[in-house]
């Protein structure tokens, strides 16, 4: 059974911790009352469990399973799934095919375990014809996936859960909330003390502070997040290494291979955590040009190479 979230009082806020979506999760709540903090933490935990259950590719009785086992037949989806499919389609178009929820099948060729097991070109190539959102027929509310293809919302699920949890809590509580699911964050507004939440950016030794436009940046280690999202994409823990070349777990769906010369990780600040996550992933897929891409978009980011 699920455990109720741990609740601890800090100087002037409450913090709750639980585990969901294979990540440690934290909710920071700028409230006084324990009863309210406890209720908010519970709601966030329930929301993360709900999204995990509904969209996880590991489940065998959710909508993703149904779509992936539809054998080419049309599947009618609910409103929330439809919104995510619409979004995936828009990301596919905006990114010129770099973001593609049908690319998960490449996992069968690539196992990112830190080893040197690089697949050979032919192995990868045989999956390429099962990838490509343009081959999917998506007419809200019906999706028809060609037989043998599959979709995976893993690329946006956690960030989406962060934003949805933050929205749900903001609806319940006027005070500021920071949702942190495994390092992907969303804050709902100014705290009672007039400030934001101070967010530490991981592995500061290699982080480059790279935004001249954002005057709120004080140090390399800390960032004050008032409202909006922060997400990180990268291969700091999941990669392959062969002949001194590091292969990122972020694969370009168009080639089936990681982009070379990509930063190890990219952390982006944006309006929402979901948006930050997509931008960070797209930046990695720009390889050498990752930072230039982020600069052009006028974003606050940290890059680790």
């Amino acid at each position: 059974m699920e455990q109720s979230p741990l609740l601890t009082q800090r100087d002037d806020y409450w913090i709750s911790e639980f585990f969901a979506m294979a990540s440690p999760c934290q909710i920071l709540m700028d409230v006084e009352d324990r009863a309210i903090a406890s209720k908010l933490a519970y709601l966030a935990q329930q929301e993360s469990f709900r999204i995990q259950k509904k969209f996880s590719r590991y489940s065998d009785n959710n909508i993703i399973y149904q779509i992936n086992h539809s054998d080419g037949k049309a599947i009618e989806v609910d409103e929330e799934t439809a919104a995510l499919l619409d979004y995936a389609q828009q990301c596919f178009e905006i990114s010129d095919g770099r973001f593609d929820i049908t690319s998960g099948i490449l996992r069968q060729a690539w196992t990112f375990d830190g080893s040197d097991h690089i697949p050979d070109k032919a192995q990868v190539a045989k999956y390429l014809d099962k990838i490509g959102w343009q081959k999917v027929s998506w007419q809200n509310p019906c999706i028809m996936l060609p037989k043998g293809m599959e979709i995976d919302l893993g690329g946006i699920g956690k960030e989406y859960a962060v934003d949805r949890s933050a929205m749900l809590l903001a609806q319940q509580c006027g005070e500021s909330i920071l949702v942190n699911y495994g390092g992907d964050l969303c804050a709902t507004g100014e705290r009672r003390n007039g400030q934001g939440w101070i967010v530490g950016v991981e592995d500061t030794a290699n982080i480059e502070q790279a935004s001249a436009t954002d005057k709120r940046l004080h140090s390399k280690e800390e960032f004050e997040l008032i409202r909006g999202g922060i997400a990180t994409s990268g291969d700091t823990r999941r990669y392959l290494l062969k002949d001194g070349v590091r292969y990122s777990h972020i694969l370009d769906p168009r080639t089936g291979w990681p982009v070379m010369d990509a930063p190890h990780s990219i952390t982006v600040v944006a309006n929402s955590c979901t948006e930050a996550g997509i931008l960070a992933t797209l930046a990695i897929l720009h390889g050498k040009g990752a930072e230039q891409f982020l600069e052009e978009q006028g974003l606050t980011y940290w890059s680790q190479r």
Partner: peptide, 26 residues
């Protein structure tokens, strides 16, 4: 890209109202 993504994300996040449960004091 950033601008198009902002619009798309905003419509994703507002497509379905959060599952509302009244926050009742315990």
């Amino acid at each position: 890209i950033r601008n198009q993504l902002s619009v798309a994300t905003a419509s994703l996040l507002t497509a379905v109202a959060p599952v509302s449960q009244a926050l009742e004091s315990s």
